[in-house]
Design a protein around this nucleic acid. Structure first.
Length: 821
RNA sequence: GCUCGGGUGGCGAAACCGGUAGACGCAAGGGACUUAAAAUCCCUUGGGGGAAACCCCAUGCGGGUUCGAUCCCCGCCCCGAGCACCA
């Protein structure tokens, strides 16, 4: 080493040794245990808990955890009592499918996986309070998951209905809408079929307006909020009644439309195949065709239905009356109209809707144009529907001709409303949350069916309904959970009347487990309440939440919903669970997605063994912006490791240094850089701009080590503190060697001197006609006239001006001077 | 198709409010140390021109606004993620 002081080779940095030592000490001294009851200044830094897979911790998980850990450690250095808990989302289809594939029971596999995860997470040096960890599979935990179900039931927000549900023929279970991706099962990609089963639902749709409105006030990643807005899917429009033409009764077809202004162009109607009026409206001569169509569409799986672009449909033989024109229009059935949205029926306006246009062209139905762009000929032929345009005006619409689209919407709904034929309506795409799973590995839904009393909730005092050990937990085609095979468990007395009863055999969706876990963490260990009132007041809502955007619409929406319900039932005094949420980016490997099949998955253990946890953490944070993710390249880790090596060497030499004179000018430059770095890192961490924070520290080390000078203690000590959130082990070790006792995380973040942050001399950029032509050294507070004089004094700058004096001067104090001329 | 990101050297990236484009790091080349190698340290490194001082070009493409555009506006192209017949 160049910087050795007395000729001896300084001790080399040995990450394994340092990291073992400090992990041991943290454990022994309870460094990371939060004073849950006594904390004066609580800060809840939460990361999404993982599903403990058999493969172990993925580098993507670790990326998220480290990002949160840095944030949490930084908050602690600011003086907060930081609570950074960890747990496992251990129930669910992933675990069960894996257990099936290796022929073992999940109740033996999951504890193994958790032990492995815990080892890996500890090796990474996260500031986790292990005295408050949980697994959703603990009866102590799912007791309260069942309790949450009972609260929703009590509030009238849980109900059972026979419904067409998404059925995965491979996993042999019902899937929530969110688990169906492009018509396929999100786990196994098998095309999803429709099945009719009796299922438990949560009325999340009742909360749609609030779930949407609150988003405006949340400090969340914008991309996540957008995803939720789209998922909730608010549309403003009107419900309009079309009387059926031939019926002697007063049958009407109700439709939802966002374009009531186009009603004069509604030339036919379409019902979804499952629409209840189909039977009534089918005329005898069309019966055979309709039956054949229903037979065909009923059997279709979701992939065919959702990916086929071709329109199909049949005429019922019946007509309805367009309430605007009074004309008879045919009523068709087609599967491009969905029963789940709106009323399951539409008025078709082929001239102004892509789908209706395609359908009308295919079946030769009339197309009437009722909206035109300004100056267009309404009678001209057209080959594509006209769906919008700011200057659009109504035509062929009687007394509404000439109105703009917005005016016409109001006027036409107003006119129809007077006749009782329409009302303004807001629709949401968000469907109720189906929580029933005909599977084994989940918390049993706490319901008992009694022949006398019907569906009876299990009394809260009898919770948990323990998931019994079932040797053969393989799901089958019956649509009944494997739990029904456990006779002793299945048969039970009715808690109300004592008559013979049977347990509900479905378990609940994994997303219910994770919808409330953040409420439990502070209260882990308490068995008489799901969450203690005082602890909840102290710690919640969560201060910062970090996780992946893959949960933007699933977990994050459900946990908001459950929190709102518990708030409405006076269990919580807040209705939004996460004050601040940031979605981290995705890590790819050498430009490609990581996947097992590509064989390019980064296993953290190997890298940590080679480079040390601190260097690995640092590299993960350095490879790209935290919120955007980045490209993991093996060769690049050495850069961060070299930085730590240099920090180590510099601190050791500074400690050994015999204090001699340091050139004044030099140390001033170092001091300025140091204070600028303290400011920069302190600004960057709260913005999650970890990559630039690390770059700033590297830059400082480069300045510090320039030339032959030996660094002074006060020049390295603050850097050790800055680096602590990123590389906690080496920071602790160096802190100790600098003569401190106790954890560096019980010290305070260093302050910077504002006077040193600002350079006194300024390199003013001189532009001529917007092009940089030079820079001059001037006093920081130089005025415009002096700056211009200084610039013109430079021949290399003045020569670019066409005349002796600039025509125009733009002066940005402290930044630049632009001379035009 | 719709929504949201993104496109900057050989590579990962930076530029925070419209003001020095490429910080920091990797890789590469050269040098020092070494019997040698590794490690370490120092130097060079967007492209083109020039002996040099310097000059020109350059942030996916084409326009525009501006004294000045990676940044704002209009029109395209490409990549990624999500949603997808939602009336």
């Amino acid at each position: 080493m160049d910087q050795r002081v007395n000729g001896e080779r300084p001790e080399e940095y040995d990450p394994q040794k340092t990291e073992d030592k400090w992990q041991q000490r943290w454990r022994d001294q309870g460094t990371n245990v939060t004073d849950i009851r006594g904390a004066a200044d609580p800060y809840y830094a939460l990361m999404m808990f993982p599903y403990p897979s058999a493969e172990g911790l993925h580098v993507g998980n670790l990326f998220a955890f480290v990002g949160n850990d840095i944030y949490g450690r930084f908050q602690r250095l600011q003086g907060h009592n930081v609570f950074e808990p960890f747990g496992y989302d251990a129930f669910g289809i992933h675990s069960e499918n894996y257990a099936l594939s290796v022929g073992k029971h999940p109740s033996t596999l999951i504890p193994q996986n958790i032990a492995n995860f815990e080892r890996q997470v500890k090796r990474a040096g996260l500031m986790i309070d292990w005295t408050h960890s949980l697994a959703t599979t603990d009866p102590d935990y799912y007791k309260w998951t069942q309790w949450v179900f009972l609260q929703l039931l009590k509030k009238g927000l849980a109900y059972k209905k026979q419904a067409a549900v998404n059925w995965c023929p491979s996993c042999k279970t019902v899937l929530a809408n969110e688990q169906v991706i492009g018509g396929r099962c999100e786990r196994c990609e098998t095309p999803v079929e429709q099945r009719s089963l009796s299922q438990w639902f949560f009325k999340i749709s009742d909360y749609a307006p609030r779930l949407l409105a609150n988003l405006d006030h949340l400090d969340w990643s914008e991309s996540t909020k957008t995803a939720q807005r789209n998922w909730i899917g608010r549309s403003e429009g009107a419900e309009i009644a079309f009387p059926v033409a031939t019926s002697e009764g007063d049958e009407v077809i109700r439709v939802f439309t966002t374009r009531p202004d186009t009603i004069f162009g509604a030339t036919y109607m379409v019902l979804a195949p499952e629409h209840p009026l189909v039977e009534k409206l089918t005329t005898p001569d069309h019966q055979a065709v309709i039956d054949a169509y229903l037979e065909r569409t009923g059997k279709q799986d979701l992939v065919t239905r959702k990916t086929s672009t071709e329109k199909t449909g049949v005429f019922t033989g019946s007509y309805a009356i367009n309430p605007a024109t009074g004309q008879r229009i045919p009523v068709w059935i087609a599967d491009y109209v969905l029963m789940e949205y709106g009323t399951g029926a539409i008025m078709a306006v082929p001239a102004h809707d892509d789908r209706d246009f395609e359908f009308a062209m295919l079946f030769g139905l009339p197309i009437v144009r009722v909206v035109c762009a300004e100056g267009d000929d309404p009678t001209a032929d057209f080959s594509t529907p006209f769906t919008g345009g700011d200057d659009a005006k109504l035509v062929n619409s009687g007394r509404f001709d000439g109105l703009s689209v917005e005016e016409a919407k109001r006027a036409i709904v107003g006119m129809l409303a007077e006749k009782g034929a329409a009302k303004p309506l807001v629709n949401f795409r968000l469907h109720d949350w189906c929580i029933s799973r005909q599977r084994y590995w989940g918390p049993p839904i706490p319901i008992i069916y009694c022949d006398v009393c019907g569906a009876v909730p299990v009394p809260e005092k009898d919770l948990p309904v323990v998931l019994p050990y079932v040797e053969d937990f393989k799901p089958d085609d019956s649509g009944v959970s494997p739990l029904a095979r456990h006779e002793d468990w299945y048969h039970v007395a009715c808690p109300q009347c004592g008559a013979r009863g049977r347990r509900e055999t479905d378990v609940s969706d994994t997303f219910l487990d994770s919808a409330w876990y953040f409420l439990r963490y502070p209260s882990v260990g308490l068995d008489d309440v799901p969450f203690d009132n005082n602890l909840t007041k102290k710690w919640l809502p969560v201060d910062t939440y970090i996780g992946g955007n893959e949960h933007a619409v699933l977990h994050l929406l459900y946990s908001r919903f459950v929190t709102m319900v518990l708030h409405d039932m006076d269990y919580l005094d807040f209705e939004e669970p996460y004050v601040k949420f940031r979605a981290h980016g995705l890590i790819i490997r050498n430009g490609a997605k990581m996947s097992k099949s590509r064989g390019n998955v980064v296993i953290p253990d190997e890298y940590i063994a080679t480079w040390g946890a601190d260097a690995f953490r640092g590299y993960l944070m350095f490879l790209g912006p935290f919120e955007e993710g980045g490209d993991f390249r093996d060769a690049s880790i050495s850069g961060v490791r070299r930085f730590l090596d240099r920090l180590w060497a510099s601190v050791l030499t500074a400690v050994e240094r015999n204090d001699g004179p340091t050139p004044a000018a030099d140390s001033t430059e170092v001091a300025r850089k140091l204070h600028q770095t303290i400011k920069k890192v302190g600004d960057d961490i709260p913005r999650l701009s970890y990559n630039t924070a690390i770059a700033a520290m590297m830059e400082y080390m480069n300045v510090l080590r320039r030339g032959e000078r030996v660094p002074r203690r006060e020049e390295v000590e603050p850097v050790v503190q800055l680096v602590a959130p990123f590389a906690p082990h080496i920071a602790e070790e160096l802190w100790e060697r600098l003569g401190h006792s106790g954890s560096i995380f019980d010290a305070r973040w260093p302050a910077f001197d504002p006077a040193l942050v600002a350079d006194e001399r300024l390199e003013l950029v001189i532009q001529v006609n917007g092009k940089t032509r030079g820079r001059v050294h001037v006093a920081r507070d130089i005025g415009q006239d002096a700056a211009v004089a200084a610039a013109l004094a430079e021949e290399s700058i003045a020569k670019f001006l066409s005349g002796p004096v600039p025509r125009k001067i733009i002066f940005v104090p402290g930044r630049l001077l632009n001379l035009v001329g």
